[in-house]
Write a protein that binds this DNA or RNA. Structure first.
Lengths: 332, 332
DNA sequence: TAGGTGTTTGCAACCAGTTGCAGAGGCGAA
DNA sequence: TTCGCCTCTGCAACTGGTTGCAAACACCTA
C-alpha cells in the first residue's frame, strides 16, 4: 500500500538515488530529472519515509516532550504553544506523561529507542537532576520552566523565581499590607522554595510586618482551597501570596465559602497569569510569566543544541511583571 | 554513541540474529544464548531501535493524536488520560495540533511519513469527513468525541448528543422552568446541532414553554460571556442550557457582572463535567460525559483496528448523566 | 548404530532510504 | 581533435534491525 522510492524511480525511469536526491536539499540533480521524479512522485503520492531516512541521517525530527503537570490549567497554553512551535520548525512532539513516578530511566530508554533528536522537559516541579539524566544519556535537553542554577549543567529556560518572590513582597508592601502570608505549593518544589526565598528577603526583618508561611500539598485547586481554609479559620492574614494561579483560585474559593470578601476582607495574589486568571469572575491579580517567550526560546535552544551538541549550557530567564486585577486592594 | 545489535552480538559471542531473537517475543532461543545476550545487552545498555525494526515489522507503535481543541479546559483531562492510556499499552502519542486550519492532507502526509500505526482524532468540532480522510489514506482511525452517524464509515467513540439535549430539556422542565434558552457553541459544530435537536424535540410544541435559541462564536469563556450578556440585556430567559462547561462559565460570569444571582435570577446548565465544574466557586450543574471511558475505549478500538484492519466501523456511545450542583434551582 | 524428531543457530536477503565513488556525458578552450 | 573540467547519474555499500531457510546439533527410539 505505501509507495516507496523504488516505485517512483521505476515510473520516472531513473534510479532510486535520483529520487532520493530530488528530495534531499542541496543534492545534485538536473532540472530534467527533478521534473520527471516530481511528476512521478505526485502521481503516486510519494513521501519519503522519515523513519527509514533517519537510519542513515541520524535525524528523526522527533522531540521528546516530557511533563508531569498535565492537570494544571496553565498547561493548556503550554501544550498548545509547544506543539505549534515545534510544528513550525518541522519537528514532531513525542509526548511522555510522567504522572506516575519521576524516575527518568524509563523515559530515557523510550526516547532512545525512538532516536529522538532532542528532549524538552516542561515542568516547574521536577528537580534539576531529572533533566540532567537525559544529558548524561547523550540526549540534547532543555529544561523549560526549570530552576536557575548558577552551576548549571543543563539548559534552563524560565523565570527567576526568587525575583518573583521579591516582586510579590514589594507589591504587597506597596499596597499597605502588613499581615502578610505565603501560601506555597509543595514544600519540596523548587519553585516554592525560590519564591519563598525572595518573598522572605523583602519581608523578614521588618518589624512592622507580621509574616507567616504555609504550604499546600500540591499545585491544585483542592490543595489551595483546603490550605486556605485552614489558614483563614485559625489566624487569618490580610493577604496571601499563593504558589500559583490555580492554588490562588482554590484560595479564593475558600475565602468566598467562609463569607469573606475579596479584596476587602482578604487579598490574594497568584503567579503565572494563566488564561483563567483574567476571566471576569476570577479576575486574579497575579504575576505574569511570559509563557510564549519561554516556549519559543526553549524550542530554539533545543534546535541549536541539536546542531551543536558541544554548546555549553546556559540559563535564559525572562522578566515577569505584576498584572493588576481585582484580588488586591489598589496601590496607595 | 548509540549501541547496536552488532555490538551486543560481538560481546556475547553470538550472531546478530540471536540478539534480535532474544528481544523478539516468541522467537526460538536457548536459555543459554538468551542469558549471554541479556548479560551483554545489560552491560552495554542496549535497547533495540524501534524505528529500525519498524522497517521490517511495519509497526512503529506510534499513534497520531490529533486535536484542534487545545484551549478548552476539558482537554487537560483528555490529554492526560490519552497519553496514559496509550503508554499503558506500549504506544507513543505523536501529537498534531490542528489549530491552524482543518485540512487533513498535511496531517495525513506527516503521519504517513512517520508510519504511525493508527490515528486518534480527538475533537467534538471537526466534521466526520475529517476522520474519514485518514481512513481513505489507509490509516486505522478512531474519531473520539465525534458525531454518531447511522451510515458510519469510521469508528466513533463518544456520546449521543441528541439524547443529551433531550436529557437537558427534561431536567429543565422538571425544575419548573418555562422560559428556556439554548445557548449553543458555533452553529456549524455538529455537537451544537445535535444537542439542539434533542433539546428542541422535548421543548418545542409545548404551548406553555417559551423557547429561544442563540449561538456563541466558539466553545470558549469569552464567547459564552459575550453571547450571554447579549441575551440577558435584551430579553432574558429563566434558564440557559449552554453548549459546554466553558461556555457556561462565561455565561455565569456575564450574569454575575449584570448583578443577577444564580440560580435565583437565572439558571445555567453545562455539558462535559470538566474538573473545574465542581470547583466550589463555580459549582456548575451540568451533564457528565464519561471522558475516561471514552478514551479507554478509543485506545482499545484503535488497537483492535491495527490488528484487524478489515473490521467494520462501529459507533460506541456512552450514556451521560445530569450532575446536580448549584446553578439550577432544585427539582420540585 | 542408524534413523527420526525437534530445537537452535547463522547466513543472507530484505525493509526504505542515503551517500561515496567512479564513470558518463556535455561543454569550452587549446 | 584532444584535453580538462564540471555536472549528473547509477552502482553498491551502508544504516539497524527482522526473518525464511537450511544446516547443525541434541536427544530419543528402534
Amino acid at each position: 500500500m505505501p509507495v516507496t522510492m523504488k516505485d517512483v524511480a521505476e515510473r520516472a525511469g531513473v534510479s532510486a538515488s535520483a529520487v532520493s536526491r530530488t528530495f534531499t536539499e542541496g543534492a545534485s540533480v538536473s532540472p530534467e530529472t527533478r521534473r520527471k521524479v516530481e511528476q512521478a512522485a505526485d502521481a503516486l503520492g510519494f513521501r519519503p519515509n522519515a523513519l527509514a531516512s533517519s537510519l542513515t541521517t541520524g535525524r528523526t525530527k522527533l522531540i521528546g516532550l516530557i511533563s508531569n503537570n498535565f492537570r494544571n490549567p496553565v498547561f493548556l497554553e503550554v501544550f498548545d504553544l509547544f506543539t505549534r512551535a515545534l510544528q513550525d520548525r518541522g519537528l514532531r512532539p513525542l509526548l511522555i506523561n510522567l504522572t506516575d513516578g519521576d524516575d527518568p530511566t524509563s523515559a530515557i530508554r523510550l526516547l532512545r529507542q525512538y532516536s529522538v533528536d532532542g528532549v524538552i522537559v516542561a515542568s516547574s516541579t521536577l528537580p534539576a537532576g531529572f533533566a540532567k539524566a537525559f544529558r548524561d544519556a547523550g540526549l540534547p535537553v532543555v529544561h523549560s520552566f526549570g530552576r536557575f542554577d548558577a552551576a548549571t549543567e543543563i539548559h534552563v529556560v524560565g523565570i527567576d523565581n526568587v525575583e518573583c518572590g521579591r516582586m510579590a513582597g514589594e507589591a504587597l508592601l506597596g499596597r499597605g499590607y502588613r499581615r502578610i502570608a505565603f501560601l506555597g505549593g509543595p514544600e519540596e518544589a523548587t519553585t516554592t522554595q525560590d519564591r519563598l526565598t525572595g518573598f522572605s528577603e523583602v519581608l523578614s526583618g521588618r518589624s512592622d510586618v507580621d509574616f507567616s508561611i504555609s504550604f499546600a500539598s500540591a499545585y491544585s485547586f483542592d490543595a489551595g482551597r483546603i490550605e486556605m481554609t485552614n489558614q483563614l479559620m485559625v489566624d487569618p492574614a490580610e493577604v496571601y501570596f499563593c504558589g500559583d494561579d490555580v492554588l490562588s483560585i482554590g484560595a479564593l474559593s475558600a475565602a468566598q465559602s467562609l463569607g469573606l470578601r475579596v479584596p476587602d476582607d482578604v487579598g490574594v495574589m497568584g503567579l503565572n497569569d494563566m488564561e483563567m486568571a483574567r476571566w471576569q469572575n476570577i479576575s486574579l491579580t497575579t504575576i505574569r510569566q511570559p509563557v510564549g517567550q519561554i516556549i519559543e526560546c526553549s524550542v530554539d535552544l533545543v534546535v541549536t543544541m541539536i546542531e551543536d551538541p558541544e554548546r555549553l549550557p546556559e540559563a535564559r530567564l525572562f522578566p515577569c511583571q505584576v498584572v493588576e486585577r481585582g484580588t488586591l486592594r489598589p496601590a496607595r
